[in-house]
């Protein structure tokens, strides 16, 4: 009797599990299918040809470097901001948090146009520097604009996870605010900061909308994918796209591995 009841119960639970599994699989499929199809459809020969193409490698290097420069500069300026947003209470903090999320919600082509009014040839800055349009610096600014929220939010979450009591205990032991930040807060939050940096870098590398408005040339890889698709068709765009995806995934995996949290056993070994 209990066996029958038991089966009846597990039968109901399995419907629950089944429906959730099916729905979840749909989402996973949406992500995995196009990527897998893209990688599988391109041949090794096609890829090596693209990798040997100086224009392509030049563009990949530019893309990685511009996104990295944007990430490093924003980390330097953004980590203190994240700390303040995690620790301090002040008037207008909610508004400030909303402002930081703005680049995520506005269309990126519109973001590019907005940037033009600040760094374009006719802007105040442009009248001094000649404008950043069509330069690597301009590309980095566009990348930074659209991707910096990822860094700030991740770093803020990292600082929030550091108990404030630890900082207080440290200060009562005679450490200045500076010392506490560099010896307690930062070492405890670095994993989240690093994962925020990776997210920002990846988001910068993939940026198309804002970048193409600031600079069609020099050509970042996403712009090149678009240009080759327009001018030469799918096959030519595909190999460049796959190459970029492989590089991004490789970076992602390596950094994730470096920033993995140590297990309890490893800590006490």
């Amino acid at each position: 009797m209990s066996n029958v009841l038991g089966e009846a119960r597990s039968y109901r639970i399995s419907w629950f599990a089944l429906i959730f599994a099916v729905l979840g699989s749909c989402v996973l499929l949406l992500i995995v299918a196009p990527l897998l199809a893209l990688v599988l459809s391109s041949s090794f020969g096609e890829l090596s040809q693209a990798a040997a193409d100086a224009e392509v490698t030049q563009s990949i290097r530019l893309t990685l470097a511009a996104a990295l420069a944007a990430t490093l500069i924003c980390t330097l300026a953004g980590v203190p901001l994240s700390y303040v947003l995690a620790r301090k209470k002040f008037y207008g903090k909610t508004a400030l948090l909303a402002i930081i999320d703005l680049p995520i919600i506005i269309p990126h082509s519109a973001a590019g146009i907005a940037l033009l009014t600040v760094i374009g040839r006719r802007s105040l800055l442009g009248s001094v520097t000649g404008g950043l349009m069509g330069s690597a610096a301009g590309i980095a600014v566009a990348m930074a604009f659209v991707s910096v929220p990822f860094l700030i939010n991740a770093a803020r979450a990292g600082f929030l996870a550091v108990p404030e009591r630890l900082e207080k205990a440290a200060r009562s032991l005679g450490a200045s605010s500076w010392r506490v930040f560099f010896t307690i807060s930062l070492p405890m939050a670095w994993r989240d900061i690093l994962s925020g940096m990776v997210l920002m870098w990846a988001r910068g590398i993939s940026e198309f909308g804002a970048v193409i408005i600031i600079a069609y040339h020099p050509m970042t890889t996403p712009v090149m994918v678009f240009q080759r698709f327009n001018d030469y068709g799918l096959a030519h765009a595909r190999s460049v796209a796959v190459l970029l995806i492989i590089i991004c995934v490789a970076i992602f995996v390596v950094v994730r591995f470096l920033a993995r949290r140590p297990t309890r056993e490893a800590q006490n070994a």
């Binding site: 108990p163 009591r165 630890l166 207080k168 205990a169 200060r171 009562s172 032991l173 005679g174 450490a175 200045s176």
Partner: peptide, 15 residues
């Protein structure tokens, strides 16, 4: 400031 007072705090969860 706390660091200039020379009082060490011991918390309930030891921190």
């Amino acid at each position: 400031p706390p660091e200039a007072r020379d009082f060490a705090v011991v918390y309930q969860d030891y921190a």
